[in-house]
């Protein structure tokens, strides 16, 4: 074996999962939101969660991100038990180490303040105080998501949907999170804008070594973005695996139906 390969193997053995979930269950009365979901997410990995509307993928995402409390299960982030943490510690994680990109940018942005303010606010949330530094970071991040610096003082309400989504990503990533949760990040966008966003997300994941959990119903999006896939139906995981393996050689009846139902272009 070559030295480089041994190096990779040694590195893989030394690593621990960044996020580790087991038995995550959330009920709404008698109805199941998600049941008994478990997986390990490794540093630098992108996990896609697919399934149709009502399959429980968004419920799972909000449980993982600490937005709602599961009825049962365990979630470890970097070895720490997230559900056992005091609320303040969890909020601190959500402000610094984690990011959450909503499908609708209006849910993740403050529409009444400027683009620069949106980015700067999150930095101030983790203790940045110097105006000059904050503004410079904001300009840097607007550039990275391809928003012209001269729009820094404009409010996002005047931006297009694609621009709003890119601003939401800048706001989320400015604090250098290690884990990003995304709920249908390309939903509701024109296909040309989608491609641009996919390119942006892929570059950021690669260059910053981010781990991500992406919920989507769009199989083309996960094919290009996700390393691994989890297929959900009626709140349960029916199949997991390498993205191209699940899409090219689906094992479960539901996944086969899902894959064969995609329109070819």
């Amino acid at each position: 074996m070559q030295a480089a390969e041994m190096d990779i193997c040694a590195k893989m053995k030394a690593e621990v999962p960044l996020l580790s979930a087991s038995g995550v269950t959330r009920r709404y009365g008698a109805r199941i939101g998600c049941a008994d979901v478990g997986f390990d997410l490794w540093p630098g990995e992108v996990l896609g969660i697919v399934g149709e509307s009502g399959s429980g993928k968004s419920t799972l995402l909000s449980c993982l991100a600490g937005q709602q409390r599961p009825d049962a299960g365990r979630i470890l982030y970097d070895g720490a038990d997230v559900l056992a943490m005091p609320e303040a510690a969890r909020r601190r994680l959500a402000r610094s180490d984690w990011a959450y990109v909503h499908q609708n940018p209006r849910d993740g942005l403050r529409m009444g303040i400027s683009a620069g303010g949106n980015v700067g606010e999150r930095l101030m949330g983790v203790g940045a105080r110097r105006y000059g530094t904050i503004r410079d970071s904001a300009i840097d991040w607007l550039g990275r998501v391809e928003i012209a610096a001269e729009r820094i003082d404009d409010r996002p309400s005047g931006f297009s949907g694609g621009m709003q989504q890119r601003l939401q990503i800048a706001r989320n990533l400015v604090t250098g999170p290690r884990l990003v949760f995304m709920d249908e990040p390309t939903g509701g966008l024109d296909v040309s804008v989608q491609a641009r966003l996919l390119d942006l997300l892929r570059g950021l994941v690669r260059d910053l070594g981010l781990s991500a959990v992406i919920v989507t119903h769009d199989l083309a999006v996960v094919r290009l973005l996700a390393d691994r896939l989890m297929v959900m139906k009626s709140g349960r995981v029916v199949e997991t695996g390498l993205t191209d393996q699940v899409l090219d050689d689906p094992q479960h009846a539901y996944t086969q139906l899902l894959v064969s139902s995609v329109l070819q272009v």
Binding site: C9, D227, Q245
Partner: peptide, 12 residues
């Protein structure tokens, strides 16, 4: 495991 295959595809 998927990550073993990913590592293999990346380098080997």
């Amino acid at each position: 495991a998927p990550r073993e295959i990913l590592a293999l595809r990346r380098a080997t």
